[in-house]
């Protein structure tokens, strides 16, 4: 399962706001920290507001507050707002999809999707925040650049290292 940009921005925003649900986090703050377009991010934040996951706090020091239950809200709940997760959308319409090989490929890709969905369903915001704290303690506080660089150089070992609690 590949996440669209909007979905990634939504997950960043939800997790950033859920770190401290009392403190409003501005769109600018999130955009700067994650190096994303504020224009695109603003649309995502409005959608999260409509879904009742974030609420806008107006005025000086305003921004967005997390208003979900971090132990109940799963990553999949956020992802489902931005992605079609019902099945492999478009599968069966691609060239060659109706051949025996095409169908076999569909079975394999479907298996991967099901595992990905089960993973996203089972990880809550609270669990993700614990994971983020562990990453920070492990020295990945400024995270993305370091992880991406090492993952690109040594994929299997690196992946194993980052997965361990």
């Amino acid at each position: 399962m590949r996440l669209q940009k909007a979905t990634r921005f939504a997950l960043y925003s939800v997790l950033e706001c859920a770190r401290d649900p009392q403190r409003p986090v501005s769109a600018t703050e999130i955009a700067q920290k994650y190096e994303v377009s504020i224009h695109h991010l603003s649309k995502v934040l409005r959608e999260l507001g409509r879904a009742g996951i974030l609420e806008a706090a107006r005025g000086v020091g305003g921004g967005y507050r997390f208003r979900g239950n971090p132990r109940r809200l799963a990553l999949m709940d956020v992802i489902a707002l931005f992605e079609d997760i019902s099945s492999r959308s478009g599968a069966g319409r691609e060239p060659g999809a109706r051949t025996d090989v095409g169908r076999s490929l569909g079975v394999v890709l479907g298996e991967i999707d099901e595992i990905a969905k089960a993973t996203f369903r089972s990880i809550t915001v609270d669990t993700m925040l614990k994971l983020a704290r562990r990453q920070k303690r492990a020295g990945y506080g400024r995270g993305n650049a370091v992880i991406s660089a090492s993952a690109a150089t040594h994929p299997p070992d690196c992946a194993r290292r980052h997965r361990r609690p």
Binding site: E114, A118, T119, T124, D126, T127, K130, R160
Partner: peptide
């Protein structure tokens, strides 16, 4: 089981991740 979300979430919250 993949669809045992309740218990999967429980173990995830305790720090368990996908195995090898």
């Amino acid at each position: 089981a993949r669809d045992n979300n309740l218990v999967l979430s429980f173990f995830r919250a305790r720090g368990m991740m996908a195995a090898q």
